[in-house]
Amino acid sequence: MKLFGRELLAQQRLFWRSREAAFFTFALPIVFLLLLGSVYGDDEIDGIRGSTFLLAGLLGYGVVATAFAGLAITLVVRRESGVLKRVRGTPLPTSVYLAAVIASTLVVVALEVVVQLLVGRYVIDADWPASPGALALALFLGSVTFASLGLAVTGLVRSAEGSSAVVNAIYLPLTFASGVFFSVDSLPGFLQAIATVSPLTYLLDLVRAEFIAGRDLADSGTEIAVLAGWGLAGLLVALRWFRWEPREA
């Protein structure tokens, strides 16, 4: 436990020291919120205020950018540079290490959510979440699911240089197709097809249901089941293909 705590602190330090990672995962969703909020915050989307719709969408986007994209890229870079191999040669259990890396990601997500809610409320005049507790649980479930998918995707990437290309090729289209910025109904057919399988769609449905309608989590069985299914699938792939050593040889 002491090992875990210390490693978590080290991972936090590493995250905030790495400017690019901190910008793309932490600051970018907030920048989007400010920019797009000023563009169509006062419009109405799916029958609700644009800024509230956008804030709920960007909460989900922040989860994917941090827990999926940021985590996967960080781990691939560490793997290819040999850091993971070196860590594995110490008595620190690999499970404690990975747990600390993931927990550190969750801490970043949590901070980001808080900042987004404040900016949303006080800068672009969005609403407060209707049921904050359920929203927190939904975001937690989403973060764990996407972290597990992030671990899984590291097995597909062969090089550090390729990591952002592959990861962005997955998550940017997902972001558009799943209705972060616009309502899914306004998208062309092929994007809607992606939307029906994308875990982000279900996370956003869940987030918007909690945020806007204050629905009970128990009434969101489908969304929760789909997310858990993706999370489990990611975990299985990660268990099979996650590597600690560079792929050079």
Binding site: L3, R13, L14, G82, V83, K85, G89, T90, P91
Partner: peptide, 27 residues
């Protein structure tokens, strides 16, 4: 055991004393 691998690899953004202290904490 102590290990020096053929190619070195540590977190580039930490300082020397931070990384040595971090590793010391593993033992």
């Amino acid at each position: 055991i102590g290990i020096v691998l053929q190619s070195s690899a540590v977190y580039p953004t930490l300082t020397v004393e931070e990384i040595v202290a971090l590793f010391a904490g593993y033992y």
